[in-house]
Computed example of a mutant assay.
Amino acid sequence: MQEETETKRCPLWIKIVLALSLALNLCIAGLVAGFVLRGGPMAGRAPAMGYAMPYVLALPRELRRDVFKAVRNDDSLPDRRARREEYRDMIKALKVTPFDAAAVEAVLLRQGDGVSRVQTASQAAWLEAVSGLSDEERAAYTDRIQDALNRNDRPKKGRN
């Protein structure tokens, strides 16, 4: 006597779902691998380094904190709430029909004034911190600035 064994087959729809899932996973893995191998979204483009960044980043950690704290605690500067309000004002001005360029310009001027005041306060705090350095500390500090600038000037891999 032969025993008949019944083998259950996997339904076709499960095979299709598994194949699609595998294909999607391979696509995502390929995208991630390509992203990593190319160097990320900024590959070939150096980030914009503002004028102050090399100066600030080269400061010793405690002085850098002092500069940021001085600016953060300056009540005469626009706070986060005030900056958000300016953005809301800009959105309102941009939505007006017909377009009122003068209203948009007024918001830009107020935002520019806020940026200028923050920059002035930041420069004053930075100058105070640097003024307190000894000659040797200032020499080491300028070496760190130069190192930061040299790192930014080096050609990046894959850039011509």
Rank of each mutant, 00 (worst) to 15 (best):
S134T: 09
L24Q: 11
D100Y: 11
D153H: 07
W13S: 12
D89I: 04
P47D: 00
R9V: 12
A103I: 08
A140I: 04
L12A: 14
G34L: 10
V56D: 03
V17K: 13
G30P: 03
A101G: 06
Y55Q: 02
V107G: 07
R81Y: 02
N160D: 12
A101K: 07
R80P: 00
L22D: 05
T97I: 15
R117I: 04
R88E: 00
Y141Q: 04
M1L: 08
F99A: 15
F35P: 00
R159P: 14
A139D: 03
A19F: 12
F68R: 00
V36M: 00
E105F: 15
S116E: 13
L18K: 10
R84V: 09
V67A: 06
R117T: 00
T97Q: 15
A129F: 00
K156T: 08
G39W: 04
W13T: 12
C27A: 03
A23I: 12
R65W: 14
P11C: 15
L77R: 02
L127I: 04
M90C: 03
E85P: 12
Q146K: 07
L149T: 06
L12C: 15
C10G: 11
M49N: 12
E85C: 05
L22E: 09
P98Y: 08
A52T: 05
V32K: 01
Q146F: 05
R65V: 07
R45T: 08
P47C: 01
R83K: 12
N73W: 10
M49T: 14
L26W: 10
D153E: 11
G40F: 06
D66Q: 08
A124D: 03
M90K: 03
Q123G: 11
T142M: 02
M90F: 01
T5Y: 11
L77S: 07
Q146C: 03
T97L: 15
F35W: 10
Q111N: 08
A102T: 08
Q123I: 14
M49R: 13
F35L: 04
L59Q: 01
K69M: 14
L77E: 10
K69P: 12
V107Y: 09
P54C: 01
Y87P: 13
A129C: 02
G39R: 05
G132R: 04
L22P: 07
I145C: 00
D143T: 14
M1D: 07
R84W: 07
L109C: 08
S122H: 00
C27F: 01
L63E: 02
R159M: 15
A102G: 06
I14R: 15
Y141A: 03
S131T: 10
L108N: 14
R83C: 05
A148H: 09
L59C: 04
V17N: 13
A52N: 11
A29D: 01
D74T: 00
L133D: 02
D89C: 09
G50N: 10
P78R: 07
L22H: 03
R72Q: 05
D66C: 05
A139Q: 00
V107W: 12
R61H: 15
K156I: 07
Q2D: 09
G34I: 03
Y87M: 13
V56R: 05
I28P: 01
A139F: 02
D66V: 06
E4P: 14
T5S: 04
G158N: 01
P54A: 07
Q146V: 00
C27G: 02
E86L: 13
Y51D: 13
G39Q: 10
R110I: 00
G30I: 01
K8E: 09
W126H: 11
A52P: 06
L109P: 09
